[in-house]
Simulated scan of single mutants.
Amino acid sequence: MPFYVSPEQQMKDKADYARKGIARGRSVVVLQYDDGILFVADNPSRALHKISEIYDRMAFAAVGKYNEFENLRQAGVRYADVNGYMYDRRDVTARGLANAYATTLGTVFTEMNKPYEVEIVVAELGEDAASDQIYRLTFDGSVADEHGYVAMGGQADQVAAALQEHFEEGLTLVRALRLGVTALERQDADRHLAAEQLEVAVLDRNRTHRLFRRLPAARIRALLEEADSDGVSGESGESGESGVEDTAAE
């Protein structure tokens, strides 16, 4: 006689499985700052990116199993390219992409034996901070419209608590980066994240057309040194430099 498991228990087991897989990964934070949206990942790998460009004004960040969220990223790029070509580039929005991702994740969660062990953020830069869009999607296809900041993966609750404690609107890039790194370090009191251990990118409102910019280690180090010299430690304080050099590598 086959062993019976109720649908409710199956869904619970899948959810627990996915949460454990996501929690084993390193964290990512997404923060709004005065000139755009900042993405900071605890990621020493130079080959496997957790943060990527999707389209002109849109970016993607993820935690969990790399091959699964990389498949989602590639599908998102295809979705944006096809819709931008068939209709208009302005018709490609983070909301539309988030809905497409939600459908895929929800279908996998309910119909497949193993859910995706991923959590993702889709962000779109608006004309001002009030029109920025940040959507957080979980393994079961749930979508949350976020404002200000997001923390995913690893010990996300501790990271989010640090962000909540010190985040404020209108942060400069220097202060936002220091806050993001300090929040990631909150997972381990003895850990100090060097520039080479970080993956950092921005959607910069000061740029034109392609607003995504990946920051190299040298630029990350310079920004953190500026924050430290100004006494910025993830708390409210004096403003620092907010610009992103165009010499940063894609």
Rank of each mutant, 00 (worst) to 15 (best):
A23F: 04
G180I: 07
I120R: 01
D132P: 06
E117S: 09
Q32E: 15
S52G: 07
G25A: 12
K20P: 04
H147G: 02
V244L: 11
A218V: 12
I220S: 09
D157H: 08
P115D: 05
T110G: 03
Y135E: 01
G153I: 02
V108H: 06
T104Q: 11
R214Q: 14
V150H: 03
E127I: 02
D228A: 15
Q10E: 15
D204A: 13
L105H: 07
P44D: 12
S6N: 11
N71Q: 11
M152V: 03
R24I: 03
M112L: 05
L171D: 03
E146L: 01
E8R: 10
R207C: 06
Y33R: 12
Y149W: 09
S229F: 06
N99W: 01
Q164F: 00
L193Y: 08
V40G: 03
V200R: 09
L177V: 07
D230C: 08
A100S: 11
D188Y: 10
G237S: 11
L48C: 06
F3S: 13
V63W: 00
P44K: 15
L31Y: 08
V121F: 00
Y79G: 02
S45F: 06
T93Q: 04
L105I: 08
R178W: 02
M1K: 13
S233P: 01
G141P: 10
Q32R: 10
A217I: 09
G76L: 01
V63H: 01
T208H: 12
G126E: 05
R89W: 00
H209S: 14
Y79Q: 04
Q9F: 11
A227P: 06
R95L: 12
N113R: 10
T107R: 14
R90A: 13
F109M: 05
V159W: 01
R26H: 13
T110N: 12
V108E: 06
P7S: 12
V28M: 09
Y85N: 03
D88N: 12
E53T: 10
N113D: 12
T103G: 13
I22K: 04
Q10K: 15
Q197Y: 06
L72V: 02
V63K: 04
P7K: 11
V121S: 03
L137S: 05
I120V: 14
A162K: 09
G231K: 07
D35K: 15
L31A: 07
E124N: 01
V143R: 06
A194L: 13
F139N: 05
K12P: 02
P216I: 11
S45V: 09
T138E: 08
M112G: 00
R73L: 14
V63D: 03
A94W: 00
F60R: 03
T107V: 07
N83L: 11
G126D: 07
D35L: 15
Y79S: 01
R207F: 04
L31F: 08
V92E: 03
G170M: 07
R95S: 12
N43G: 04
E165R: 10
A47I: 12
S229N: 14
V202T: 14
L215R: 08
S142M: 09
V28S: 09
V40H: 05
V77Y: 00
G21V: 05
L211R: 15
H147Y: 04
K12R: 15
G234V: 08
S6C: 10
S236C: 09
S6L: 13
S142R: 10
D128Y: 01
R90C: 02
